[in-house]
């Protein structure tokens, strides 16, 4: 009987310790939004516009405008044209525009790119894991990354059409000017 009681106590203690461990793991592994000036969270994602994958690290040395969007997002439609035009405008200065399609059906995303004439590279974050690491709360959101791979400027929540000054400042910060 004494052995049974002891076994029961050990099992109960182990269960409590396990639950505590899970709680600690959860608290220590919560994603925190990256800070401005810190490294942009790395990722390698499947391309939507073509085959293959794109690794953010492969763009090191170039300023990057990172735009999170989705085909089901109505405001994203409103900013697609401006982003496409800006990608042409800043291309000579070496700025790379990169779209990240968020929680979207691949076929819908391709139709969106075709419909809006988006020509810059686009990758797909179907699970939203990359968006989580950037702290994206809703699409569209736009981030700016400098040549050293650091987040610069202030990220734009909402469309770039509604934040033209912040967009220009962000691109300039990415260019280092």
């Amino acid at each position: 009987m004494r052995t049974l009681k002891l076994t029961g106590q050990i099992v109960a203690l182990a269960a409590v310790a396990g639950l505590l461990g899970l709680l600690v793991w959860r608290l220590t592994h919560q994603s925190k939004p990256p800070r401005i000036g810190g490294p942009a969270p790395a990722f390698s994602l499947k391309r939507v516009d073509t085959s293959g994958t794109l690794d953010l690290a492969s763009l090191r040395g170039k300023p990057v405008v990172l735009n999170f969007w989705a085909s089901w997002c109505v405001p994203c439609k409103g900013e697609a044209q401006m982003l496409e035009q800006a990608s042409h405008q800043y291309r000579k200065q070496g700025v790379v525009f990169l779209g990240v399609d968020f929680h979207d059906v691949t076929g819908d995303a391709r139709k969106f790119l075709e419909h809006h004439g988006v020509t810059y590279p686009t990758v797909q974050d179907g699970s939203g894991a990359v968006a989580d690491r950037y702290g994206v709360s809703a699409v569209p959101e736009t981030y700016f990354i400098d040549r050293q791979g650091r987040l610069v400027g202030e990220h734009i929540m909402g469309t770039v059409v509604d934040a033209k000054d912040a967009f220009r400042r962000g691109v300039e910060a990415a260019l280092g000017s």
Binding site: A70, S71, W72, C73, V74, D104, V105, G107, D108
Partner: peptide, 10 residues
């Protein structure tokens, strides 16, 4: 949500 409706359509 819009995302749910697109997935349903798919």
């Amino acid at each position: 949500s819009a995302a749910a409706r697109r997935i349903e359509a798919f």
